[in-house]
């Protein structure tokens, strides 16, 4: 599904021709539309998890969760939204050095979150929760795993932008740009707030 994040210029107009369209506006519209679809993607997994929240099949359940640890990694991910905003702001002022710094910071925070998730999965595996243990395990690993893949894709896009900017090819109208990746990144963070609340904090 990552291919839909590839923006493409539409070049059906120029000086000689009336129908000039604002490329940046077109791409932003497409990104919002795509994120609408992504919301349903996560909604389906969150619903599946809610259905199976207590279906542990005799295996471990939500008592495995270490709330302080996951709170810390959630904090890291939310801070990456702040650095993303700062990157966008610097980019708006065309301060490419600052932009690069904040992009690298965002990518590092995202990578830290991912490292935390891998660590967490390892611990849960050792304590006996595997995807095949129970519907609870299946739904948990699928939901958090697909979120992790989204963060990973975001880190890749951030890295690509850092490389592009160091060769001077990161422009406001290039297909891969700070504004679009920013939208995506904030969306992935917001989804994590929902996941953290529904999966970890709700312990009824």
């Amino acid at each position: 599904m990552s291919t839909t994040t590839t923006e493409e210029a539409q070049t059906t107009g120029d000086g000689h021709d009336e129908g000039v369209h604002d490329i940046v506006h077109i791409r932003k519209t497409a990104m919002w539309v795509f994120l609408g679809s992504e919301a349903m993607f996560f909604a389906a997994m969150i619903s599946s998890f809610l259905l199976y929240r207590t279906t542990t099949n005799g295996g471990p359940g939500s008592e495995l969760f270490e709330i302080p640890f996951t709170s810390a990694s959630s904090f890291v991910l939310l801070m990456s939204s702040l650095t993303m905003v700062l990157a966008h702001h610097s980019f708006g002022r065309q301060d490419m050095r600052q932009t690069r710094i904040w992009l690298v910071a965002t990518a590092l925070l995202g990578a830290t979150f991912l490292a935390g998730q891998i660590f967490e999965f390892t611990v849960f595996f050792e304590e006996g929760l595997k995807p095949g243990t129970s519907p609870f395990g299946s739904a948990f690993y699928m939901l958090t795993g697909f979120h992790g893949i989204h963060v990973f894709v975001g880190v890749l896009l951030l890295t690509a932008m850092v490389i592009l900017s160091s060769t001077g090819r990161l422009k406001p109208d290039s297909g891969l740009n700070v504004e679009l990746v920013g939208l995506y990144w904030h969306f992935v963070d917001i989804v994590w707030i929902v996941i953290f609340t529904v999966v970890y904090l709700l312990q009824v």
Binding site: S37, E38, M40, F41, A43, A44, M45, S48, L51, Y52, T55, N57, K130, P131, G132, T133, S134, P135, G137, S138, A139, Y141, M142
Partner: peptide, 29 residues
């Protein structure tokens, strides 16, 4: 489409990666 997409992933995982989304024996629905 994302909704069936999740369903199809679950089906594929159940068939190939040992998850139990639709295994009634494991308590699934």
């Amino acid at each position: 489409l994302p909704l069936i997409g999740i369903g199809l992933f679950q089906l594929y995982f159940d068939r190939n990666l040992g998850t139990v989304f639709y295994a009634a024996a494991a308590g699934a629905d």
